[in-house]
Design a protein around this nucleic acid. Sequence first.
DNA 1: CGGTCGTATTAAAACGTTTCAAAAGGAGCG
DNA 2: CGCTCCTTTTGAAACGTTTTAATACGACCG
Lengths: 342, 342
Amino acid sequence: MVSARQPLSASVKDVAAAAGVSLGTVSNVLNRPDRVTAATRERVERAMADLGFVRNESARSLRAGRTRTLAYVMLDASNPFFTDVAQGIERAAEGAEMSLFLCNSDGRATREATHLEHLEQQRVQGILITPVEPDSSLLDAIARRGTPLVVVDRIRKGGEFCSVAVDDVLGGRLAVEHLIDRGHRRVAFVGGPLSIGQVTDRYEGARQAWAAAGLPEEDLTLLAVDSLTAASGRSAGERLAGIPSGRRPTAAFCANDLVAFGLLQQATSVGLRVPDQLSIVGYDDIDFAAAAAVPLTSVRQPRQELGRAAAELVLDEAGNPAHRHQQVMFTPELVARASTLG
Amino acid sequence: MVSARQPLSASVKDVAAAAGVSLGTVSNVLNRPDRVTAATRERVERAMADLGFVRNESARSLRAGRTRTLAYVMLDASNPFFTDVAQGIERAAEGAEMSLFLCNSDGRATREATHLEHLEQQRVQGILITPVEPDSSLLDAIARRGTPLVVVDRIRKGGEFCSVAVDDVLGGRLAVEHLIDRGHRRVAFVGGPLSIGQVTDRYEGARQAWAAAGLPEEDLTLLAVDSLTAASGRSAGERLAGIPSGRRPTAAFCANDLVAFGLLQQATSVGLRVPDQLSIVGYDDIDFAAAAAVPLTSVRQPRQELGRAAAELVLDEAGNPAHRHQQVMFTPELVARASTLG
DNA sequence: CGGTCGTATTAAAACGTTTCAAAAGGAGCG
DNA sequence: CGCTCCTTTTGAAACGTTTTAATACGACCG
């Protein structure tokens, strides 16, 4: 029998009183059920059900000194890339009987800082984060104070924490090598802001491939945008369409798929045929890439793997005294589709 | 000066000792800085910085009896619809100076139950949830025990909690009325599982529109799939393509955009022209809908609004003793695009 | 029947905060 | 100089759990 609206009040003490045992026995039922006789255990469990007892995790973790929680602070929850990473983390967390809390910084350093502060105060067992600014001393401070922390999708050498990423320079190289192979001699890199490491790395890879092919530097244009969203892609598309066709790049390499989507939409809407007049390469190979107006050539990253690896590192740091920080780098892969295959 | 690797150990007591004041004073600096003289406040703050003091939220909320946290248990974090809802919640939470934790049940009742159990134990200030099974007694039990709870994207009348949703029956009607207007007389509804209320409501709306137009019941086919994913959409596409063209539906109304994407992909790949041979209507109008291979006609829901409204209700319940449970229903809207405009 | 041993239960301490009543300082005033 | 009245600071209690050492209780054995 459950009573109505008993606002989460029953404590171990109440249960003990109701069951006619001591408070310690109730705790034993909860934590070492084998040490308690079947009859009393039953009586206690009955009392817990009657009173609607719910363990108070604050008290539990205060006493225990640790929680059963992991958290992932996402850079952009509306980007499927990050939700896939999160899913990889979730699976690993579940395997370790941990709860995973997702926080979204939405690309804003202030919101990120707030989340981090709360998480640290909550004494979560580990923090995974794709940071707005990976060089922020905030991260070092947190790691130094003792919360296991792993940076996801960015490598940070020499830090006091692990990091896991995919080789973005290589990814950029793959993308542009592909375009060069397809005969393109004027290419635009569309991405930004340049303060984001993922962007600069992919750009760097693009430039390496360009240089390696002996092509003139000025024919690899940088088309800077201020966020990695479809809206930015559309604005880049406008600028691109405004260039006279004789000088216009014949292909664009976008820093992620969302930008590529926007660019594709805009280009199509002003009558630029993709891939004939403009080839497009995206990055991430999110599930939607294959379903785009023109199926998108993209650089695939092992998203779930990335998450899983990160979770394993943070769990290792939390549980293994012999833990050593490490930097794990995955390899991306080009997936060619119609947007570059005229 | 920050010492190296002082694992989150400094407590209020340590700070007090370092600053040469009592523990109560440190607490005052933290909670009522105006009641403490500038000089001592400075001294205490200095000590906190030196020791790397981080407030222990477990102890704080144990004593205070409540937390500053909201949680949203998402049905499917990889569906952009839900991340947009989450963004609406996040904005509202931020306005109320609350942290928002996102949990992903991934459509599994067991994982959902685990998350709910942890959240209740954590004494979060409120739970928002798009449940796997809205009629589950688990939800009632939680509400009855006193944690404010709001069901998102589903209406549940007579419950002990608020709910917020969009009129799915109307949405289904809009979609099918549109198809009838465009001249379609054989239509398939693609969705499932039928245990999901959103699916049955949209189907119900479709049937209402069909009946209202006086069309024969058997010409509105149900194409059941077992999840609302692109993969399911592709399998439905195979089945659809297998029907001889004389009897094949000329249009499909999909229970959400992900299914519509899959269907579109599959149809295109077997040479069915969209919209000429098969028109498609999706549901949710996620951002990718407009960027699809054939831009997708879809039923738009006020996603962020939905989240914001839900968050406001849960905050009201948490803070306002005069709170009354209510059911809020939003109105959807059809957005016509190329996938139905031959 | 006394002693020993093993099991089941209990009582008390501890975790790190917040809060509240009480004490300690000072300032102002007669 | 003594008194009152503020303001600032202090000390102790309380939040709900877990844990550990101690106790109670039988049972078994000699």
